[in-house]
Amino acid sequence: MTGDVLLKATDVVKNFPVRGGAAGRRGPVVHAVDGVSLEVRRGETLGVVGESGCGKSTLGRCLVRLGEVTSGRIEFEGQDITRLSRRRLRPVRPGLQMVFQDPYTSLNPRRTVGEIVAEPLLVHRRGTHAEIRATVADILDRVGLTAEQADRYPHEFSGGMRQRVGIARSLALEPRLIVADEPVSALDVSIQAQVLNLFADLQEQLGLTYLFVAHDLGVVRRVSNRIAVMYLGRVVELGPADRVYSTPAHPYTQALLSAVPRIDDGTPAQTPTRERIVLSGDVPNPIDLPSGCTFHPRCPFARDNCRTERPPLSVDATGRQVACHYPLG
């Protein structure tokens, strides 16, 4: 089901300046994304997981060019879009859309649902008003909203319905790639499942490709074909979802998975088999990154060279990428 490379990121770096730098000199920076290279293949869902501050959302925003990258290269459908101007980017935008986390703040409260979904069509001059109205009705139907609901305002909807509106808006221009940034984390469990199923249905019907950013490891496993695990701005492991979850190769992935609280429902799959690995301390300051492997201060297996040499993201025989000097066997 996966095919050619739709989006390719090469060594993407995004730094944010922080206050405190002397005038005229470069101040300290937050290393939000610190050299990420990855490919998103047509038709797949690439999940990006990590804890808060690991740079997963910033990466997602950079890849759709919502924010300038500090360095690196982003290619979408073979075209380098890293430095395209606003005007030059305009024809690229329809192919590359975003769904945001918070359905309460990402929708304009003063516009009806119909107007919200129609806006990208109007901006990109996709047809007459009558045609646009028909398209909007069609899209709303796809996401499980009725045509009558087009005249209502976001506040009249529950969180799950609002997120459907956000998804409808992202579909308006018939994108190839949708970057979804924590699209279900504000929703109740029973609603979350409905929205995740909607993502799956739309992918099947429209052949969409997703970059799915989330912190919930269960959610990411559910939707993803491949998964990238991020820690402090870097991808530490990237591979097929099932392999990453069943046999994590990076000690951080292993610790992260072991920390997820399981519902012991009596089935063997849910009974925790491994001891929980409780990581000591907190995530280090992204302004002043640790030397070598940035995970070494918290890694139970760190050795001397982990403190000095940064492990490259290397590919093993099965195509899984791991950035660790001593990957788990």
């Binding site: 469990v189 029973s190 979350q192 499942a193 409905q194 995740l196 199923n197 799956a200 919930d216 490891l217 269960g218 959610v219 496993r221 559910r222 979802a241 099932d242 979850y245 998975l257 997820v260 399981r262 519902i263 089935t267 799959a269 849910q270």
Partner: peptide, 15 residues
């Protein structure tokens, strides 16, 4: 409806 990290990966979550 809770997506789990272990066990069988369901095609659709029950809702």
């Amino acid at each position: 409806s809770v997506p789990r990290i272990g066990g069988e990966k369901l095609h659709r979550l029950p809702t």
